[in-house]
Every structure is written in structure tokens, then in C-alpha cells.
């Protein structure tokens, strides 16, 4: 278990190993090879950030560049999944979901139910999300709650390399459509990852840090910001339990509620817009099922209800940081009726 690799390498390795393991796994996406039809090298990019680099040389035509037509290729991935393959489609930025939403929302998500249980659609859509790299309003959003809202979809938001590999392999083997949200600022983070193939079940939260005073629930990059805040707070005697749900659909209600029952105080940290979000959803869950345990109002640390701004000075104000989380925790910890 000593081997340390990056989140990006973990994703590449999951794809590589599962393609080696299962010939029905194919990859498609914009520039995931790079160089198709051109006069220079193939595998020139391996995706805009090089996540799929090296897979085309190894697996050839099972790794396919697509035209920049998200409806067609996401729909093709869905159709191929309903026809016996296990496609993994890369949607470069999750913001581009707007272009192909129908194929996910009305087709993939609903086949099984509409068709009376007779369809299986084991498609995976990997997509990059999150703010922090000055990519502005159309390349920085965190729209996982939109997909969590849709029955029939599963939604995965890994926060570290170990989870990224195990959840992606599970997603590929899973017989339902799965959307994997990869935070663009996490690709270079490192962690211990087994060399072998392994899966992580969906709907099992990770208690990243144990603590008895305040429960922090956070996803993706926000897990790291929350841990940072928790360390500072621990120095002042406030022990935070940090819970990473890892998947938003299914959601591990039980772990969240169990923690809230022991702390009575909750801060939810969410990088997505504040309305109709995972933060509000989890708040509602806690308010309904753990009301009796609450000793303070639930706090949510989210961006403001604005698009993601471009200028660094604005974006830094927009994204929740450790200081904001710390403030919220202190407020919750110090609250008394």
C-alpha cells in the first residue's frame, strides 16, 4: 500500500486496468486521443489534461476521438451501453452538460424504468468540474446536484486518488448510468493507491477525520478545505468530524445522521451554487431525521448565488475556503439556545 500516485494517474490506471480486464469497455471523448486525422502524432494530447494519455497506443480503436458534438457522442455512449458495451465517455467540462443533457436526463436515466426494467445502460460519463483556475463562468461550475436530482442516475464525486480509482472501476462495472465528477484542482494531488484493481461501493461515505464537536460534510475539493479548517480548529480544542459522502446518488444518509447524532452541530461545505444543492438536500435530510439531536442551526458554506467569476480576485472570494469554513464551525460550535 506504499505506492503513492496522483488523482490523475489513479483515473488513468483505473481506465487502463479495466480496459485490460473487460474488452467491452471503450472510451470516447473530445481529444482523448488527440491528433486523429491530423498529419502529426496520435495520442498527442490524451485529453486536454492528459488523463487518458497512453491508452490509445495500448488499446487502439477502443479509444476514440469524437467531433465536438456532445449530444451525438454522449448519446452514442448511452446507445452503445444499451447495446452491450461499457462505454466511458469523457465530457471535457461538466459545464458542457447543457449541450447533451437530454441524452443523459431523458434517455440514459429513464430507460430502465420506462422500459419496465428490461434495459441496462452501463454508461459512465467522466467530467471535470469546479472553480479555482480562472476558467470563468462556463468552465468552472459544480453541477453534481443537477444530476443527483434525476432518478436513474448515479453520481460520484471522488476527493482523493484512492477513491477516484475505486469509484471509477465500480462505475464502469456498475450496470446503471454513472456520472463521475472529477475536480480539476485535484488531478495533481497524491495519495496511496493499490496497484491492483479494486472497487469502492457507492453510497458509503468516508469519515475522513473523526471528531466529537462539529460534523462537517464536504465533497471533492471541499473535503481538503474542510480538513485544513479542522486542523486549525483542533488547535483551539474544537474537534471536527469530516465526512465525505463520495457519492451523492446514492447518498449515505446513515453515516451523516450517525455523526450528527453524536455532535449535534453541522456545517455543510459545498462548492456548488447554494440553491437546490447538495448542501440544501443534506440540510433537509438532517432537519428531518436528526432534528432532535441538533444543538445549533445547520450552517452551509457555499459560493454566493452568482455565476463563477473570472478575475482571480473575485474567484477567490467566490469559492469556499478554509477560513470561511472555520468561521462557520466556530459559529456552530459556540451556539447556545
Amino acid at each position: 500500500m506504499a505506492r503513492t500516485i496522483t488523482y490523475q494517474q489513479a483515473i488513468n490506471e483505473a481506465l487502463d486496468q479495466e480496459m485490460g480486464n473487460d474488452p467491452s469497455v471503450i472510451l470516447m471523448g473530445e481529444d482523448i486521443v488527440g491528433g486523429s486525422g491530423a498529419d502529426g502524432e496520435m495520442d498527442a494530447w490524451g485529453g486536454p489534461l492528459g488523463i487518458t494519455k497512453g491508452l490509445y497506443p495500448k488499446y487502439g480503436d477502443r479509444v476514440m476521438d469524437t467531433p465536438i458534438t456532445e449530444s451525438a457522442f454522449i448519446g452514442a455512449a448511452v446507445g452503445a451501453a444499451a447495446s452491450g458495451l461499457r462505454p466511458v465517455a469523457e465530457l471535457m467540462f461538466s459545464d458542457f452538460m447543457g449541450v447533451c443533457f437530454d441524452q443523459i436526463y431523458n434517455q440514459a436515466a429513464k430507460f430502465r424504468y420506462m422500459f419496465g426494467g428490461k434495459a441496462e445502460t452501463p454508461v459512465v460519463i467522466r467530467t471535470m468540474y469546479g472553480a479555482g483556475i480562472r476558467a470563468a463562468a462556463q468552465h468552472s461550475q459544480s453541477p453534481y446536484s443537477i444530476f443527483t436530482h434525476v432518478p436513474g442516475l448515479k453520481v460520484v464525486v471522488p476527493s482523493n486518488p484512492y477513491d477516484a480509482k475505486g469509484l471509477l472501476i465500480q462505475a464502469i462495472r456498475d450496470n446503471d448510468p454513472v456520472i463521475c465528477f472529477e475536480h480539476k484542482s485535484l488531478y495533481q494531488t497524491e495519495g496511496e493507491v493499490p496497484e491492483e484493481l479494486y472497487t469502492l461501493p457507492f453510497g458509503e461515505a468516508n469519515v475522513v477525520r473523526e471528531g466529537g464537536d462539529v460534523t462537517i460534510i464536504a465533497l471533492g475539493l471541499m473535503v481538503h478545505r474542510s480538513l485544513e479548517a479542522a486542523e486549525t480548529l483542533a488547535a483551539d480544542g474544537i474537534e471536527c468530524e469530516v465526512i465525505d459522502p463520495r457519492t451523492t446518488s446514492p447518498l449515505d444518509d446513515e453515516t451523516i445522521l450517525e455523526s450528527v447524532e453524536s455532535t449535534g452541530r453541522v456545517v455543510i461545505v459545498d462548492e456548488a451554487s447554494p440553491r437546490c444543492s447538495m448542501a440544501t438536500d443534506i440540510s433537509a435530510l438532517i432537519a428531518r431525521d436528526a432534528f432532535g439531536s441538533l444543538e445549533a442551526p445547520i450552517q452551509m458554506v457555499t459560493p454566493p448565488h452568482t455565476p463563477v467569476p473570472f478575475a482571480g480576485s473575485l474567484e477567490d472570494l467566490y469559492v469556499p475556503d478554509a477560513t470561511k469554513i472555520e468561521t462557520a464551525v466556530r459559529q456552530v460550535a459556540g451556539y447556545s439556545r
Partner: peptide, 17 residues
């Protein structure tokens, strides 16, 4: 217009297989 992308997928599956 929901069907054509799906058929690209079905055709792709036939081609791959």
C-alpha cells in the same frame, strides 16, 4: 430527435463487436 445518437451507439456496438 432523441433516437439518432442512440442508434450511433447501437451501430458502434455492432462495429466494435
Amino acid at each position: 430527435g432523441g433516437g439518432p445518437p442512440l442508434i450511433c451507439g447501437a451501430a458502434l456496438a455492432a462495429k466494435v463487436k
